[in-house]
């Protein structure tokens, strides 16, 4: 997890100012700022929330409220790689829950949990728009489809 330093906070601040240019209100920069905070700190850290609040003028309590509304934001520290596995209907009927079981057996991963070595976190998704090639997942920022246990194994091996 990257440490919080004044240098990193300064980078975040600069990015927020850039984002604010794209909208007629400062508050609209919140959602994109969260992604930037995650990129810099690994999650939306309390210090990042403080910085976003200082720059945009939106109270920290409201910022936490907004961030926690959206399922994809990392509001707590997570593993190095995020497995976002879909289990919605089309993936379910093609065996997504077998993959959930398999991740539990092989890596000790439970939905919402992180492996002890901090390598993977598992997030269950609500439809990622890959229903025709189910079951599917997003690993960090790449989509993988037509998953089987073997394929999942091979893929995870390449993420250290």
């Amino acid at each position: 997890m990257p440490q919080v330093t004044t240098e990193r906070l300064k980078i975040l601040r600069g990015k927020i100012y850039e984002l604010m240019e794209l909208y007629p209100s400062y508050q609209a920069a919140l959602l994109p700022s969260f992604f930037v905070a995650e990129e810099i700190f690994g999650f939306i850290s309390p210090e990042a929330i403080g910085e976003i609040s200082n720059v945009t003028g939106v109270p920290a309590a409201e910022i936490r409220g907004v961030a926690s509304f959206y399922a994809m934001y990392k509001t707590k520290p997570m593993g190095r790689h995020i497995i976002q596995l879909c289990t919605n209907v089309s993936c379910m009927i093609e065996g997504a829950y077998d993959l959930v079981e398999y991740l539990k057996e092989k890596y000790g991963l439970t939905p919402g949990g992180t492996t002890p070595d901090g390598r993977f976190s598992l997030v269950i998704m609500e439809c990622i728009g890959a229903c025709g090639t189910a079951p599917a997942m997003i690993l960090d920022t790449d989509s993988y489809e037509n998953l089987t246990k073997d394929r999942l194994d091979t893929l995870l091996e390449s993420y250290k």
């Binding site: 959602l31 994109p32 992604f35 509304f69 959206y70 399922a71 994809m72 934001y73 609500e126 439809c127």
Partner: peptide, 8 residues
Amino acid sequence: VHSGAGAY
């Protein structure tokens, strides 16, 4: 482009 964050 404004990215959402997983809210149906």
